[in-house]
Design a binder for these strands. Structure first.
Lengths: 117, 117
DNA sequence: GCCATTACTCCAACAATGTAAGAGAAATCG
DNA sequence: CGATTTCTCTTACATTGTTGGAGTAATGGC
């Protein structure tokens, strides 16, 4: 393994989406939440599933299959749940991200250096 | 190339350090600034140089060799300068990082969920 | 029942990035 | 000169990112 429990960018984004989505975190909803974060950059659905698999095998999250919903095409979903290990890794990487944001802000003079967002 | 101008985690950290260091951005100083951000996680010097090379070949930064300083062992340094392309990529990824931070914060109830930092 | 359609999951192959470990060059000090 | 210190750069490999498409279920209309 690379190191303790470091995670990559997409992994962070995926964990964040799961945290936010709570009980309704499954492939497609996670995908759209992630794209909300990376906008305007797109992310393919496949990338999400691959990342989900890897995070699960690292023990950062667990999954279960739900019953199909009575919607057109609504088939069974695999819902994910954030585990303690995953939450810890997410928080740690978020702190680094925040420090970076602050450093950039102060280096650029504290003024608003970005209008979007 | 992966996509437009997306950059990885270490790349973001390195660009941030260069922005912050201004005229004194070279391998060793960048390394210590990056570790200040990732603390308590360590990063090897080699990782920094490799990343610097890659960023330079992408046109995100340029470098020049400086004259040696009159210090014990003070040899010539290769100083880096952030180019427009790099600054743009950094800002973009920083915005995503900030959105993630905010989403985590609101998902966790707005309370202070981390004491360190 | 069948078929078109929709929502969703998962795999395989490849590209980019992250990381460690160590070799090697240049300068100062005694 | 030789020891020491600061710094750069390379190699080799591990992990993560990304795409594109295959495959499975369920619904609704005919």
């Amino acid at each position: 393994m690379a190191k303790a429990d470091s995670i990559g960018q997409l992994e962070q984004l995926v964990l964040t989406a799961i945290l936010r989505l709570g009980d309704d975190a499954y492939g497609v909803s996670i995908h759209s939440t992630v794209e909300e974060l990376t906008k305007p950059r797109a992310v393919s659905l496949g990338a999400i599933y691959v990342t989900l698999d890897r995070l699960e095998s690292k023990g950062m999250l667990t999954s279960r299959l739900t019953d199909p919903t009575p919607e057109r095409g609504g088939r069974a979903k695999r819902c994910y749940r954030l585990e303690a290990l995953g939450e810890r890794a997410l928080k740690e990487s978020a702190v680094t991200a925040k420090r970076m944001w602050d450093m950039i802000g102060s280096a650029l003079g504290g003024r608003k250096w970005v209008k979007e967002y």
